[in-house]
Design a protein around this nucleic acid. Structure first.
Lengths: 187, 187
DNA sequence: CGCGCTAAGCTAATGGCATTAGCCTTAGGG
DNA sequence: CCCTAAGGCTAATGCCATTAGCTTAGCGCG
């Protein structure tokens, strides 16, 4: 019987990432991962400490993926143009991968494994605001306001939380304008 | 042996509501509810169809509770004063009951059981904006923007998603001002 | 006053899950 | 060529939801 020695921690996370995309964070089960890997469930413990750790690692993967997408969306832009592009990219990402977004850790800074990825993602937001010359506390506040708006809208939209689907583009545009106005008042 | 005939569906939901407060939505288990009720697990099926249904009912309870709190916070106020009070009440509620808030259904309109409670909660938001004379679509947009900001901030804060705890009051004040400004522009 | 029906409890059993323990085999380095 | 450890396996445990089927107590009706 030919034994495949190809399974690695990274490959396991890959499979888990795909399963989360299909079935959401709660659909991520070691049994399903094992089946997709063609392996018995307990064998996974040779590569991953627990289901919890696997979820943490999938969270890192999500953060990295978002960072990559948003970096690409903002590259070569500045000022209101960059902020607008970032906000649209965020919404589009969540709309395209709602289950994946649900697996994004909300508090990456409190987990040593996720901290670096979280810092990078926040860094993209900060870099997008570079042109506004915000210093210290003002910069932190601006990033926070951006996160609130962008995550608030995307999480409600992706959960189907807006009763009427129409005019959602208009709502989001208003939020973008509202945020841009707050940047103007502060700089 | 004295048999208690006191268990009702409402009582089961009461107990479940309490458990969610303590251990969060994922800590809500029929086994735990049964133990807290002093009853064997399968007995719960005489009052509740499934764990899923129980979660739905707990969600309704959360919506009703929020409606009550926010109504009280806004009563006797109008205009910017009312909006400010509502936004502070929302943040305070989530801070006081983070686990409970995590059990709030994000899409109550899609569930016939939760629809009425969801409509009432949205109604409180709408009534708070009454003084601004918004009609039709403009009113809907204003309610949506309010939800986005208030839910975005509260969900990130309650998850411990803001790295630095300090200055959060300042961030929230800025968001309130930003929202009030958007109401001024539209009326 | 008693008879029976039903509501509400019970135990037993099933199947899915994560996790642990302990075994076996094989690949690869000395 | 051996031997060690990595990476697979099966078996077993315990928790969970859910279903089936039994039992009993209280209530309504004759």
């Amino acid at each position: 019987m030919v034994v495949k020695r190809t399974l690695t921690p990274a490959a396991v996370v890959d499979v888990a990432f795909g399963l989360v995309d299909e079935h959401g964070p709660d659909g991520l089960t070691l049994a399903a991962v094992a089946q997709a890997c063609g392996v018995a469930t307990p064998s996974l413990y040779k590569h991953v400490a627990s289901l919890g750790e696997l979820k943490t690692l999938v969270g890192v993967r999500v953060l990295e993926d978002m960072t990559e997408q948003f970096t690409a969306a903002v590259l070569g832009r500045a000022g209101d143009d960059a902020v607008t592009a970032l906000m649209h990219a965020y919404r589009a990402y969540v709309a395209a991968h709602p289950k994946r977004y649900a697996a994004m850790p909300m508090d990456p800074m409190h987990d040593p494994v996720q901290k670096a990825a979280g810092t990078k993602l926040i860094g993209v937001l900060g870099a997008t605001l570079r042109g506004y010359g915000l210093q210290g506390s003002a910069a932190i506040q601006a990033i926070r306001r951006l996160r609130v708006i962008v995550h608030g809208f995307a999480s409600i939209e992706s959960a189907g939380g807006f009763g009427l689907p129409e005019d959602l583009d208009e709502t989001y545009d208003q939020l973008i304008q509202l945020y841009l106005a707050s940047l103007r008042n502060e700089s």
